[in-house]
């Protein structure tokens, strides 16, 4: 287990990566050196920023560089992500991490990442690490429309992987969903992150093909470190379990899939 730290991190670079998505890099060696793919951080602006939303927000670690940089892919949803998307180089962000249980990569199977929307974020880190270890890794990335697609050039640069892109309206990449027309003949390990209906469809797919699947789930969080019990999801045993410490990555069989 890693021990999370709390640190002010200097914003080094921000760039608009699509209509409503930003790529933000911060200087954060103490978290970078411990981080593992699938883990997340809580990002906030601290106690004295009284104009900002109060609580920090959870974000997957999207990249970790040897020089101590962390990268985050941030999509604007509401007031919290709006505030965070407005940071500029030189600003400081309060970062708590690394948090949560990472993906467990199978030693022998190829890895197929199923990314729905901003659920792409953890797979940038997974892709880069797997590529570095010369693993067979594929990233299937879906968005509703072309204008939301995170810059494919940046995906290639961060991960070294050529993404298999899909849009629901076919305006970019293949038309369809991330679970459509997948080549699963090499019996890969599946990793998925995205909206709930997509995760349910992935769980269904994994069951039908008898493939191992890990999912990264999202739930509202208070503390991010396991104290408030705010972030629970229902386990297959019918218990409420904390997604910040026992997740956010779960084996799909550990969870009850509500419809």
């Amino acid at each position: 287990m890693t021990a999370p730290v709390r640190v002010w991190a200097r914003v080094l670079e921000t760039r608009k990566a699509s209509g409503d998505t930003f790529w933000i890099e911060v200087d954060c060696p103490s978290i970078a050196e411990q981080a593992r793919p699938g883990q997340f951080v809580m990002l906030g602006t601290g106690l004295s920023d009284v104009a900002a939303p109060l609580l920090p927000r959870p974000f997957s670690i999207g990249a970790r560089e040897a020089d101590g940089r962390l990268g985050f892919l941030l999509r604007v949803f509401g007031a919290g992500t709006q505030r965070l998307s407005a940071v500029v180089p030189g600003d400081d962000l309060l970062v708590l991490g690394p948090l949560g249980r990472p993906f467990t990569l199978s030693p022998d199977r190829p890895i197929v990442c199923l990314a729905g929307g901003v659920g792409l974020a953890p797979f940038l880190f997974v892709g880069a690490e797997a590529k570095r270890d010369a693993r067979d890794v594929r990233i299937v990335y879906g968005e509703r429309t072309a204008d939301r697609v995170f810059d494919p050039e940046l995906i290639r640069r961060i991960t070294g992987v050529e993404p298999d892109l899909r849009t629901e309206d076919g305006s970019l990449g293949r038309r369809g969903l991330v679970i459509d027309d997948l080549d699963l003949d090499d019996r890969p390990q599946l990793l998925a992150c995205g909206p709930d209906p997509m995760l349910r469809a992935c769980a269904d797919l994994a069951r039908r093909h008898d493939l191992p699947l890990q999912v990264s789930v999202e739930e509202h969080m208070g503390c991010g470190v396991g104290t408030c019990q705010g972030c629970v999801v229902l386990s297959s045993e019918g218990e409420w379990i904390k997604s910040c410490t026992e997740g956010p990555v779960f084996d799909a069989r550990e969870l009850a899939w509500r419809t």
């Binding site: 109060l54 739930e219 509202h220 208070g222 408030c228 019990q229 705010g230 972030c231 629970v232 409420w240």
Partner: peptide, 21 residues
Amino acid sequence: GNPPHRVAETPGGMINAIGLQ
């Protein structure tokens, strides 16, 4: 404890219903 969502933000604060888990 209670079903999610258990926490949410409101201006200047938060609301929680953990249910004493």
